[in-house]
Write a protein that binds this DNA or RNA. Structure first.
Lengths: 120, 120
DNA sequence: CTAAATGCAAACTATTTGCAACGAT
DNA sequence: ATCGTTGCAAATAGTTTGCATTTAG
């Protein structure tokens, strides 16, 4: 882990809001004036791949970055009733965006046919 | 409604899949070779604004377009309990994509503070 | 007639990439 | 010495925009 990568990760983790790559870049330049945008993007991609940072896709706007959190929801099999946990990272943001409201929390249950039942 | 606009709308409505602007443009050129990409984008924007066409935002990929459908969910005020209806077009697709499962249906309730309560 | 819409091309935004220099093992 | 990483600048992808011309109402 290079100091650039460390710096970028620290900025994301320390941010009170969800910063964009550009904002992270601006912030990083204060500590390390020579850092390049390309480096920020490259490292964000790497950090997202390793799961250290979470990317939030925002339609018609630059992506935002955040530390990962692990909420989870349930998928219920319509056939056998088995419950699977699913990690629905980013759903709250999707709901906020789709409703255009400051959604605080939500209750969600999904229904499907589980892999086992699907094979019979 | 110009013939370009009509053509674009028809293409979206006739498409078996969810076409991108580029695909719509290619398809439109077959009927009207002089049509410009800019026209396709401008009309798609207009059609989306008027509700005649639905835009599907896809992370890291061109947006797709579809005819609109109107499911709806509830937003409940945590303060006064008032219920607002919201149109959550595209949520099922988001859930399918996020869970990587063939979600059949879902139950969703969201909580927020309604505009009236927010102002007191 | 005239306001809105078009075609064309250039501009823009967010992000990615090629490459030579750099830096940590 | 080596291999990943950097800074820089140019490239890319998707979309938007300015402008002179055309078209629909």
């Amino acid at each position: 882990m290079t100091k650039q990568r460390k710096l970028i990760k620290d900025i994301v983790y320390a941010s009170y809001k969800h910063p964009t790559a550009e904002e992270i870049f601006e912030s990083a330049k204060k500590k390390m004036p020579s850092i390049a945008v390309g480096t920020v993007y490259r490292n964000l991609t790497l950090l997202v791949e390793s799961g250290e940072v979470r990317k939030i896709d925002v339609p018609n706007a630059p992506s935002k970055y955040d530390r990962p959190q692990i909420p989870h929801e349930h998928l219920i099999c319509k056939n056998c009733g088995a419950v699977a946990d699913v990690d629905l990272v980013g759903l709250l943001d999707v709901l906020k965006q789709k409703t255009c409201e400051e959604v605080i929390e939500y209750k969600l249950t999904m229904y499907y046919v589980c892999p086992k039942c699907k094979n019979f």
